[in-house]
Design a binder for these strands. Sequence first.
DNA 1: CTGGATCCGTCATACGTATTACTTGGTGCG
DNA 2: CGCACCAAGTAATACGTATGACGGATCCAG
Lengths: 364, 364
Amino acid sequence: MPGSGRQTSRPAAGPGGRSDGRSDGVDGAATGPSGRPATRPTSRDVAQLAGVSQSTVSLVLAGKWTGRVSPGTAEAVHEAAARLGYRPNQAARSLRLGRTRTVLLVLPTLSSPFFGALYTGAARVAAGHGFRIVVYPWPDGAGPADNPFAAPHEAIDGILASSMAVEALSEFRGTPVVMLDSDPAGAAPTVDFDVADGMRRVAGHVLGLGHRHVGHVAADVDEWTFRSRGRALAAAVEATPGGRLSRVTAAIDVAAARRAAGGLLRRPDRPTVLVCDDDQLAAGAYKAARELGLDVPAGLSITGFDDVLLATALEPELTTVRLPAEELGAAGMATLLEMLEGGAPRSRSLPGELVVRGSTAPPP
Amino acid sequence: MPGSGRQTSRPAAGPGGRSDGRSDGVDGAATGPSGRPATRPTSRDVAQLAGVSQSTVSLVLAGKWTGRVSPGTAEAVHEAAARLGYRPNQAARSLRLGRTRTVLLVLPTLSSPFFGALYTGAARVAAGHGFRIVVYPWPDGAGPADNPFAAPHEAIDGILASSMAVEALSEFRGTPVVMLDSDPAGAAPTVDFDVADGMRRVAGHVLGLGHRHVGHVAADVDEWTFRSRGRALAAAVEATPGGRLSRVTAAIDVAAARRAAGGLLRRPDRPTVLVCDDDQLAAGAYKAARELGLDVPAGLSITGFDDVLLATALEPELTTVRLPAEELGAAGMATLLEMLEGGAPRSRSLPGELVVRGSTAPPP
DNA sequence: CTGGATCCGTCATACGTATTACTTGGTGCG
DNA sequence: CGCACCAAGTAATACGTATGACGGATCCAG
């Protein structure tokens, strides 16, 4: 709504044109409780104050005015903009440029500290580049039709996707994509954790403590990251003289892990350490150990993976691998923004860090 | 990826096909299967296909065409739109209407399942109304200057804010605001949990088990929700003959809670139950109990508040109050959308549910 | 003195939509 | 028959920005 002095005009409707008293229902909320006029200043307002044309304002603020505008004029424009607190209207910008400075972040869920941290890292980088993030929760296994969230098709420049088949994104044909922590062999550039390296560190730690019979409580999820963890552990154990691996699988769930780990521990020749694919699985392993009267770590060592909040709430605290989720988000967003600016896609891997706490000790 | 319980996933490189070297974009197609240019169809394209004018398309798709367009024409428009897969350009819409269908969600952090769930509920409701959510992480106590995230000033219709002084939002003067789980006495409409009621349920439960000396492990955070919990607990205990309350405070942190609870338990006349303001505090109480050789629940009962993942990972599982975070987000968003459509602000309170698990028993 | 060349800017326009004012062909009615 | 009126649409416009096409000085060489 035109509130302040604009002179261009030539309103087709005469002086009486603004008498509309619509009560249609889709109005409302235009003026806040404070009753201020509240029309945001436009580039034309800035132009008027600086005594130049709107196009000059646009040129100056875009920063590409060398050789077209004198330094003095440029300064005047900047000053006027600052005085009015001018912020460009994003809608107009998007309409003109065809780009929205918005990135879609696809996550299986936000109800997990891991993905929350991932978001935080991505948002920090995005904000630094003037980009906005819209989160698109996409539960695992859900098809586009099952999804309770409408995808904002129209308004994105790129996609940062975690845990989702690239094919499911077919709706966004032609949109640059960076995948997070998924199979690097896929079509899209990927930023992931070097989980194989992380698992090698775990293996090195427990084998170094003297363990030889290693129990692996694996996640019952057919995903690249877990397959990779399993392979790395198996390789490390096999490479050790006397090394031996027993594996059970469980859904990522405390109760399921307890049952699976219990089965493993009840075998006559039970392993002396349980390497778990995930901290939640480790929590289940704790429960199984307690059930069987095994002391951790004296009677049984346990390790996790991820280092979520849970890890330090357990007693004793859990030896695990810290995956820097926030850095993953940040690196992924940085990669995507590079692509959006015409750079070549570039995949990366982030190292995990072994955090040794109280749940591991030499075998009994 | 951690803790997500993912089911579906397959190697992105399918059998055959995707052997081209391109790696940017979901699918490299510059033109669709029909050979059309890659630009998204506009309302004019729809108009041309339907044999009508652009304004007719707009009228029909807006749904308010009764008496202005014949049913037959309307159907033709709908069909053409469907055939082209037309989606209105949001930027143009926003520019024209001055509204963005975007809501800012202010949260202290997303690295917590609670706020993640809150987001999920809010997003579900927003998506149902064609609104988009932009998350604005605002750590508690941070001023606007400290904030590493740039606020997208230009592009929001309303604000849903959790745990933040309304005054800190002064930047957004005139924008409708709904506060979540904060002091209902404030200026803005509020949706919160009836934590007083929840705490009364906890008190009723433990007092009903026969406990009389109640220890309160309170959060050392001066926030409405915690003050309210404390008052409700005190009132319930005082109203019970023989009831007695001992209180310690601790930062919301497992280690701090352990120290505080330990102090309480080492007193000569120690309480027989620890009512904790929060599940994390309860986790600390477990550790203190174990340290002192107290069995839970036989020697000491413990209760939490919030019912986060942690609650069932503890051994024994924690008796606590489930706060439906997702519903909070949904109710808050619903309230905000009502306001945006001109409705009167309306505050609400959501009840919590007592979840009795294994950590409470009659006093020894 | 004149015809470029160089500066420093402005004009006009398009992006895609929603909406208001207007047109047009038909119809009822006095 | 003439006029108003209705149904069914269409033309025109504005939202605020970015940018390519233009324009008026000023200066310099010939």
